[in-house]
Structure formats: structure tokens, C-alpha cells
Design a protein around this nucleic acid. Structure first.
Length: 851
RNA sequence: GCGAAAGUGGCGGAACUGGCAGACGCGCUGGACUUAGGAUCCAGUAGGUUUUUCCUGUAGGGGUUCAAAUCCCCUCUUUCGCACCA
């Protein structure tokens, strides 16, 4: 907590109490939270014709403790939400819990309890912490992914995907985390380690369920439907999908003519193929192994490579190794005989899982060929320096002039790419195609605490989907969590063994559960109709609320969650459940809260507990600090002094308004004419100008730019102007009215950031409406421009004087004035004026040369 | 290695389309009120200087412009993403 200073611990010391600044946030905050809740202002209904605004912050895993990062994240969402409420939108800001998954299971093991119990306890505890922050969340729409009424529809969605051919099962080598005892999707492996526990990941052959996200690869590359997504996230997704265009070519095997398919982006190098590279996992290799059990050298090599962990195998600097298979295939273009090698550097799950190796023009193939003395054939000549196989030290990967490529010799290689592809298609050797880095999404997890996959395995019928009327397939309760080494659901026979819905014979349930990213890939739509018990949601309600107007979450979800959610969103659209092509119109990736430059974590011992801050300084202080410290998409550096600054700011406001309560109330009753205002003396008129300017800046920063730090700065600046008025109670007439209306704007501008104190001050001024009903503060154009404008005068780019003139001054007159400024005259001595440039309302710039 | 973003006081950060660099806050310095200060109020706070008067200054170097933190080129540093993707 506050370990580098102990100042505030003294704040609770009674002897020092009387001098400590203090506004009654302890009373105010619960009061308004209760009022909001009673009046249900955060539970919007669908009102046809009323514009809606859907603000969604990524739902948390219910750890039981509200972290400062949550506070920061949801403070941003709440600011947007309340701003939109002031603007008159029907605002929905729901909240729920991503409550399935390993952490919940591990937490229960740790506490020797059941995840259902610990999860519900944690949810209750988080709920009260959310409320103590004063977030405007619609709890009537709460969802929790681990409850049967939610995962029922996840199972239903699985069935729909299955029926549309987007689910399949495949036996293959998987990323296996030994610590978590489960498989991981490729996206969940980070530098060869588990994204959650950072344990080592190795390869295990398993049968797994997959979602065919690759069917949507092309559409997922279309980002044109988003209004405002960070370019960074789009780039990351684009790169993750990794489309490359090229050609698929079939190389017939010498022995029986059956084809080996390769994918290449360099069809122009096809005459330079000198060997074929296959990974040990390739089906052909597996077939050869099965047919020739006596080939121990091949067997040993394959076993070794497959069992090598993925980190070292996939690292770019791993030494390339291979073994000659003893077999050959034929290059269909020139009939040459090509050796087939089994290697450790080809990936089974990219392209076709086989590579035509062109050592002269691919660095990896080059290294391999040099190591094993495989011939190298130059087919693209470097126009600047002739390539010689004998002396080449690296592959030549640039374009050049075709050589040793029969009919294409002398052609430019870029042109040859197309010509050769065309020839390949004409002759039926292959076809032009695209390949994606994106893999299908493996959703099976060998864990207990997840959505059961609604499938029954029947010895005679095979895979049978659980009928709709039997959904949800509920998780059994009596599982010895943490006590099983294999799939936990296998240990519950009364759940496991069922009758086949097809033939009525003995059958077994699927014991894998779904990746929790499945749960979070459609929750945004469930919020539109969270209690529907006959379908995932009513499409009519979804049509009102969807898409999400503003989605907020961490950059860590740039690829996984956001890509999966887009995929399922598009699928639900294709089913006719949703109308929008994209579920999230705008995306804000908020920054992290750092302390001492590092992410807060228990292990580093630099965690700040938000409830401690709320208790000492109030939720409004915490929110103002978090929003003021930096723009929403940047990291926030935690600062104890910064908290004090925010607290001081709110106290100053409190003193200003509560201290001048009567004057303000009186001033608000006075009706003033335009003439009265025009006649104000300079000091009071200045307050009028600065009020309108502050409101304008505030509106701009908070609504257009979503830059709350500067919006709050505008309020602070405005406060400074208000407190500069020394004796407000002595004011009267238009001057008092001006002061009162300057003060009146403060709660309005504070509301999205510090809603409790804002409501209290508003009430103190004698108003009875809640602030979101009042609407946004307004400004008038007239009071943005002062009677006199200050022009800066520059000579050759340097500030040489200032000029106070009327806003409607004639340009020529202004130039004359500028040239006559004393200091300007002095600077211009010995110079000839070449040009005078006027920037309206800002400056006069004089270009002069020695003369 | 490839790609992207960023670099501004002691600190967090402002400066939106090129137009007074350092808004606002923190911290610091001095003062006021005080038994006291961790409250509050006032003044100051980029560096230098001849301290109402000019010079330098937005990672460094060049360029475009009347005018550059902002645009262009090169270099350096940091962060992030990807990393045998054929």
C-alpha cells in the first residue's frame, strides 16, 4: 500500500483531525449510489426511436477483489456512459463475469472448496466493490458465464456451428501445458510458454474439437466496418491472420504418381526446386513409417523432432536438421527428379505442410542444402552481379532475370511469377491460392470448470449432438476438483454414462469442456436480452442494442478475444440473429496502471488496493486521479501525491460551492439580459468568458476527443477562475448571476468523472433533477471571443511584441499596428520587410531580410 | 531479423488542421495565517543571462517554411507486436 510515505495514516489520528481538509464523501457517496439504484437510472428499456448507446467494458474474471486496473478501466467506461446519458441517449452499460476457467478451478483447489461456491462468493464481493466505486452499471442484466442459464446458449451456439459445418474433430499434435493439464490454442502460447501459468508447453497428440475460424479469414481481414479502432489492433489482427498469396503445386511421387501438394509464394523459382521438405508430422511420412517399421533411422529422427518442445523447434535460430527419405518426386514443370527430405524446419500446420525447396532463392533451404550437400540451382539471376553456386554465401531472394527455367529464361522474375502460375493452372499442375497464418481454433480443454461440449459419443452412431430439449448439459457438482490427473469429468460415471439420443444404446458424454474464450465471444449479445430462457437472445432486442458502440478493454485482448468475438459475431449475423457485420464499432484499448514503472502485481509487492483509497479519500477522488493522470489509452503511473492532488481539487470545489451556497442560489434566480452582461466590469466579464471557454473545451475534449485528462484540466482551470473572485457574497445583479452560473457549470462538467460530489453540489444549489436529466452544459459563441484580442507579432519567426486589438479589425490596419510596435521597429532596423502574414485571431508574422 | 508506435521541465502530462512550447496537476522554493502543519491562501518555478531583455531549448544531426514538438531525410534510444509462415 502506501509504503513509501506514511502521511495519511496520520490523517486518521484524532489529534491531527481538526486541520485535515475534508469534504463528507463518506456520506455523499452511499447516498447517491442508493438514489441512482432506487431510480433505476442505469436500467434502460428499449424505446423505439430513442437513440441508444451501448457502452461495454470487458467483463472481469471474478477474482473476488477489485483491482486498481478494474477501477481505471471501468472509470473510463462510466465517464463515457454518463456523458452519453447527459446527451440524451438510452445508455446501456452492463456488467458480468467471465467466471469459467482454470483460475477459478485453481482458486477452489487452493481454498479446498468447489469452484461454484468460491465463484459465487467472489462475485458477491466484487459486486459490492463495483458499487462502492459508483459505476453506473445495469445489474439487472448481469451475466455469469458459469451459470447454466448462460452456458445453455453457448452449447446451443456450438450446435449451430456444428450444423453449419464449422465444427470438426481432429487428431493432431497439440500445445500441451503440463501444469494446467490442458491444451492451449496457438494464440495462448507465448514464447513457448503457457499464457496463464507460464509453464512450459510441449506437444501431445490428442483428438480435439475445432471451430473453423479460417472460413472467415477473408472477412475478418475487412476492417472497414469499424468506425474507430486503434490502428495498432488492426495491424496485429491483420498480421495474425497473415494472408499470403501464392500458388499450390502438386509434385507427383515417383513411385506411384500420387501428389504432394506444396504452397509457394514464389512460383517464379519452381525450376530451381532441388529437394522437397516435409515435416515428420506429414501424413505421407507417417504412412512411410507405418509401412517400414524396420527403418529405425527415420523413426528415431521423427520421434526426436516431434517430441522437441515447440520453443526450440520454432525458434528462427534453431539449427536445421533433416534426413533423406530415400524417395523422390517429380517436378511437373521440367520432369526433374527431386529428393524428398524429412526436416525439422517445415511446419505441418501452415499451407499444405510441405515445401518445395529452392536453396538458391530461399535462405532456409539454402542453409539446409549446404549442410546436406544438396544441389543448388540458380534460376533467377541477379542483374547486378552474376550468381555463382560455388561461391554463393546466402540465398538470393530479390527479383531478377529468369535463368535455367526453360521457356521463361530472360524474363523478368516478377512477370514470370504470373506467367508460370498461369501455365501451372493450364496444365492442371496446381492453382493460384492464398494461405493464411491463422489456424482453426482448437476449443477443447481437458478441464472441469468450463462449458460442457453438448456431444454424446455412441459406439454405433458416432458423434451425436445433445438434443435441444436436453440442454443445458449441466456440469456435475460432485467432482473431486484437483484430485484427478486425467480429464476430471471422466471420474463422474453417473454423468458420463448416458443413453444415445439416436439409438438408445449405451453411450458416453464428451468430457472436454470449451475454451473460456468461447463464452466471451458472444456475451455482448446476451446482454441485450440476458434472461431469455428460450433462445440466446431475442434478435429484435439485439437489433435495438447491437452493435456495441464503445468497447473498452486491455490491449492484451487485441488478437485472441477480439478476433474470436468478431468471428462468432459474424457467424451470429449469418444465422440471422444479429444485423451488424461487426460487434464492436469503436474500440478503446485502455492503458495499464503502473507503479514505479512496472505493472502492479502481488509478486512485486506494488499493489494498491482501491478499497483503501475509497475509504480514505472517496471513489470520486480515485476516479478523478485515474482519469486525470493520462489519456485513457495510455498507461497511468500511480502516484500517492497524485491522489492527494485529486482530493485537494474536489475539496476546493466543495469549499467554493458550499461556502457560497446562498450567494449562488440567489444568483441563479436573477435573470439577466444580454445588455446587463455586456455592461459587466472587466473582472466579472472575464469570468463570463472563461466559463464559456471552459465549457467549450470540456465538451470538445470529453465528447469529441475522449481525452478526459484535459477535460478535467479545463474544469481545474475554470475552478481557478471562480476562486479568484474574492467576495462573492458581496456581488449583486449581473455580476452575481455570472458568478452563480460559473459555479453552476462545475457539477455539470464534473458529473462524468466524479458523479457523487457533482450530484451533491447540484442538489446544494437547489436543484432537484438528477444531473444526467439536466443534459450537457452549454456555451454561447458570443462569449468565446473577448472584446480585445491579443495578437502576437513575430519577426522572422521570433516573438517581438504583442498587440491588443478589436476582433473585427481591418487586416491592413492590423499590419500597420504590428509594424509600429516599438520592439518590432527596433528589430526591423536595417531590415527590409518582404512579407506580412496574418493568422486570424492569433498572430502577425513579418518576414524581413537584411537590406 | 521484420513490423509498428513513441522520445517535450525534477515528475505525470498539454500544445487538436505547422502559428506565443511547457496548459493542468504533482513536487519544489519563498511568504502569509499559525503552538504546530500534512490544511488553507499568496508569489515563483525549462535552462542561461546584463533578471522587463535578450539568447538557447521538444533524443541527436540535416532540410522545407515567414513560422517546425508538429512535415521530410539520416542517426540514436525505448516500448510493443511478430519471429523458420515457404
Amino acid at each position: 500500500m502506501f509504503n513509501h510515505r506514511s502521511l495519511w495514516h496520520k490523517a486518521l489520528d484524532a489529534s491531527a483531525w481538526r486541520h485535515t481538509m475534508e469534504y463528507p464523501f463518506h456520506k455523499i457517496e452511499p447516498k447517491w449510489q442508493k438514489t441512482w439504484q432506487e431510480r433505476r437510472i442505469f436500467s434502460p428499456q428499449e424505446v423505439p426511436g430513442k437513440p441508444k448507446y451501448y457502452v461495454l467494458s470487458m467483463f472481469p474474471y471474478p477474482s473476488g477483489v477489485l483491482h486498481i486496473g478494474h477501477a481505471s478501466n471501468y472509470a473510463i467506461g462510466d465517464a463515457i456512459s454518463r456523458l452519453k446519458m447527459m446527451q440524451g441517449y438510452a445508455v446501456m452499460q452492463p456488467m458480468g463475469y467471465d467466471s469459467f476457467g482454470m483460475p477459478a478451478e485453481n482458486y477452489a483447489i487452493e481454498h479446498n472448496s468447489h469452484p461454484r461456491i468460491t465463484t459465487e462468493e467472489n462475485i458477491a464481493s466484487m459486486r459490492s466493490q463495483f458499487d462502492s466505486m459508483g459505476f453506473g452499471l445495469d445489474w439487472e442484466r448481469e451475466v455469469s458465464t458459469c451459470r447454466p442459464d448462460y452456458y445453455h446458449w453457448g452449447q446451443y451456439l456450438f450446435k449451430k456451428l456444428y450444423e453449419k459445418g464449422l465444427v470438426y474433430r481432429k487428431r493432431s499434435f497439440q500445445n500441451w501445458c503440463e501444469a494446467c493439464q490442458t491444451v492451449l490454442a496457438n494464440e495462448q502460447v507465448d514464447e513457448g510458454r503457457c499464457w496463464r501459468c507460464h509453464g512450459e508447453v510441449n506437444q501431445k497428440e490428442l483428438e480435439q474439437w475445432y471451430f473453423r475460424i479460417t472460413d472467415y479469414a477473408e472477412e475478418l481481414l475487412d476492417f472497414s466496418k469499424m468506425i474507430d479502432w486503434p490502428e495498432r489492433v488492426i495491424q496485429m489482427q491483420r498480421h495474425w491472420i497473415g494472408k499470403s498469396e501464392g500458388t499450390r503445386i502438386d509434385f507427383p511421387l515417383q513411385e506411384d504418381g500420387s501428389p504432394i501438394s506444396v504452397f509457394t509464394t514464389r512460383p517464379d523459382t519452381v525450376y530451381g526446386v532441388t529437394f522437397m521438405a516435409l515435416p515428420p508430422e506429414h501424413p505421407l511420412v507417417q504412412k512411410w513409417l507405418a509401412e517400414n517399421p524396420q527403418d529405425t533411422a527415420l523413426r528415431a529422427f521423427c520421434d526426436k523432432v516431434i517430441n522437441e518442445d515447440k520453443i526450440s523447434r520454432s525458434a528462427a535460430d534453431t539449427i536445421k536438421e533433416g534426413i533423406f527419405s530415400g524417395r523422390h518426386c517429380i517436378n511437373p514443370l521440367n520432369g526433374s527428379k527431386i529428393q524428398i527430405w524429412i526436416t525439422n524446419y517445415v511446419l505441418m500446420d501452415y499451407g499444405t505442410g510441405a515445401v518445395m525447396a529452392v536453396p538458391a532463392h530461399d535462405q532456409r533451404d539454402f542453409e539446409f542444402a549446404r549442410k546436406y550437400d544438396i544441389p543448388i540451382q540458380v534460376v533467377i539471376q541477379n542483374p547486378e552481379q552474376n550468381l555463382d553456386v560455388a561461391t554463393m554465401e546466402e540465398a538470393y531472394i530479390e527479383p531478377g532475370i529468369m535463368a535455367n527455367s526453360a521457356p521463361f529464361d530472360g524474363m523478368d522474375s516478377e512477370a514470370a511469377k504470373e506467367a508460370i502460375s498461369k501455365l501451372i493452372e493450364e496444365k492442371g499442375y496446381g492453382q493460384v491460392s492464398s494461405s493464411y497464418r491463422l489456424r482453426d481454433w482448437g476449443i477443447s480443454r481437458q478441464r472441469y470448470w468450463g462449458t460442457p461440449i453438448p456431444v454424446i459419443h455412441c459406439p454405433s452412431c458416432g458423434v451425436v449432438l445433445v438434443p435441444d430439449e436436453d440442454l443445458p448439459v449441466e456440469l456435475p457438482e460432485n467432482v473431486q476438483v484437483g484430485k484427478t490427473t486425467s480429464n476430471p469429468l471422466l471420474s463422474v460415471p453417473e454423468w458420463l454414462n448416458v443413453k444415445c439420443p439416436g439409438c438408445g444404446g449405451d453411450a458416453q458424454r464428451e468430457t472436454d469442456t470449451m475454451d473460456t474464450f468461447v463464452d466471451s465471444s458472444w456475451y455482448y449479445a446476451r446482454y441485450a436480452d440476458p434472461h431469455n430462457s428460450t433462445q440466446p437472445f431475442d434478435p429484435a432486442k439485439a437489433s435495438y442494442w447491437m452493435p456495441v458502440d464503445q468497447y473498452i478493454g486491455g490491449i492484451e485482448h487485441a488478437v485472441m478475444h477480439l478476433l474470436y468475438a468478431r468471428f462468432i459475431g459474424k457467424f451470429m449475423r449469418d444465422l440471422g440473429w444479429l444485423e451488424a457485420d461487426e460487434p464492436f464499432q469503436r474500440l478503446l484499448t485502455q492503458g495499464m496502471v503502473l507503479k514505479d514503472g512496472a505493472k502492479m502485481s502481488k509478486s512485486k509487492g506494488n499493489v494498491v488496493d482501491p478499497s483503501y483509497i475509497i475509504q480514505k479519500f472517496g471513489a470520486d477522488t480515485l476516479r478523478v486521479f485515474l482519469l486525470f493522470a493520462s489519456p485513457p489509452d495510455k498507461d497511468v503511473e500511480w502516484s500517492d501525491d497524485g491522489i492527494m492532488g485529486a482530493y485537494r481539487f474536489l475539496n476546493r470545489i466543495w469549499r467554493l460551492i458550499s461556502g457560497n451556497r446562498d450567494a449562488i442560489q440567489r444568483g441563479l434566480q436573477i435573470s439577466v439580459s444580454q445588455q446587463d452582461l455586456e455592461a459587466l466590469d472587466a473582472k466579472d466579464k472575464e469570468l463570463l468568458y472563461s466559463t464559456h471557454q471552459a465549457v467549450k473545451k470540456w465538451l470538445d475534449d470529453s465528447l469529441q476527443r475522449m481525452q478526459y485528462n484535459t477535460a478535467i484540466a479545463a474544469v481545474m482551470e475554470h475552478l481557478n477562475h471562480c476562486t479568484a473572485i474574492k467576495d462573492p457574497s458581496g456581488l449583486e445583479g449581473a455580476a452575481l448571476a455570472t458568478f452563480a452560473s460559473a459555479c453552476r457549470s462545475i457539477p455539470l462538467m464534473l458529473y462524468p468523472f466524479a458523479p457523487h460530489i457533482a450530484e451533491e453540489l447540484w442538489e446544494m444549489m437547489g436543484y432537484t433533477q438528477l444531473l444526467h436529466e439536466v443534459g450537457l452544459p452549454q456555451y454561447e459563441e458570443r462569449w468565446l471571443t473577448r472584446d480585445l484580442i491579443t495578437y502576437v507579432v513575430q519577426v522572422n519567426g521570433k516573438l517581438r511584441g504583442k498587440l491588443e486589438v478589436a476582433p473585427d479589425i481591418d487586416e491592413e490596419e492590423l499590419k500597420t499596428h504590428a509594424l509600429n510596435v516599438e520592439n518590432v521597429q527596433r528589430t526591423l532596423e536595417g531590415f527590409v520587410v518582404k512579407k506580412v502574414i496574418v493568422i486570424p485571431n492569433k498572430m502577425v508574422s513579418i518576414a524581413a531580410a537584411k537590406g
